[in-house]
Simulated scan of single mutants.
Amino acid sequence: MKIWFDLSNSPHINMFHDMIRDLEARGHEVLITCRPLANTIDLLKQRNLEYHVVGEHYGKNLYKKLFGYPIRVNQLRKFLKNKHIDLAVSQSSFHSPVVAKLLGVPSIYTNDNEHAMGNIPCFMFANLVLIPENLPVEKIVKKGGSAKRIKQYPGVKEGIYLWQKGEQIHAARKQNPADNKTIYVRPEPLTAQYYKGGLNFLDSTLEALQDRFSITILPRDKTQLEHYRQSKFSGIRVPDKPMHFDQIAKECSLFIGAGGSMTRELAILGIPTISVYQDELLEVDKFLLEEGIMAHEPNLKPETVEQMIQSLENKEPDLQLMQKGKQAYDLFISEILNYNR
């Protein structure tokens, strides 16, 4: 079977890397398309995945996005029309199910962001929509999905690709315990259509903390890279290229995330995490907060960070969602293989 993955944003590489390698090991052929957004291409290179760049990202402006949407759909259709694809698989690629429909190919679509407008055509056209168990089916139906084509998987999305890696990471953390001084920060998704929160709102807190902690900023793009290279952040490390996720997870004492995927990734690994997301929370984030798996401080103050760091001593990680991740992974593989002709 020939399976097309459209990895259109940087979180998708972590999401599907192991699954792609697994499918290839089973004898299936995989074709990957992407676009130059955030750290996507850098991460594909880092993970040694062969890819084809198709189209571009049109920024945060809604009108530019609407203009650019059919352009990339058509670009993907032209690129794939003679590639003899059997199945399309994607996470939050708003183009993939539509392109698959135009090609007469079945598609599997997964998403845990019920607020994103781009989901509407995907929920309408995908043959199968996979969502986490904590996201009500009714919310997807309201956005155009059919209850008959929706299936819920155990746990949360991040568990699907972290269940195996999590064991290795925690073994490494036990051998070299975190020093309660190392903080990693992921800024806000400034180009995302769904994000309506503030920009650079962590600046004063980071300035206040940089002399007391080892802080690393994980910028999403060149705009953020240049912003945090200003002299007022001279005590903060700002890598030129994306850091390997394993390194972050092994040495991180506290993670502060203004976005979604990476924040949840660190949280379900049992690493102390503060979400500072300033827009409406997703159902999956509300679930993590209710379970006490992460904290939410949209107006984070330096003293809150210091208090949380002090409370970490001898705290055991909560790994309940890691156990569900394996079940969810097996479900994804099973659903993909159901389309084997």
Rank of each mutant, 00 (worst) to 15 (best):
H57E: 11
P187V: 12
L162A: 01
L337E: 15
S234I: 02
N134H: 04
C252N: 02
R26A: 05
K2L: 09
I215S: 05
G55Y: 11
A88T: 08
K157A: 12
H57Y: 13
N82M: 04
Y339L: 10
T205H: 07
K81L: 03
V105E: 13
E133A: 13
V238Y: 01
Y184M: 03
Q320V: 10
L254F: 09
K101N: 11
K142N: 06
M294F: 12
H28Q: 01
G270K: 03
A25W: 00
R186D: 04
L135D: 02
N340H: 07
P272Q: 11
K65Q: 10
L289Y: 12
Q152H: 14
Q193G: 03
D240F: 00
P187T: 13
L87G: 08
F125A: 05
S10C: 01
G104Y: 11
H115D: 02
G55W: 12
E303M: 10
K81P: 02
S214Y: 09
L321A: 00
I120M: 07
M19P: 03
F67V: 01
Q323Y: 00
P219Q: 06
K60D: 01
I3W: 14
L102K: 15
E138M: 00
P36T: 10
G144R: 08
F245K: 15
K101F: 09
N9T: 08
G197Q: 13
T263N: 12
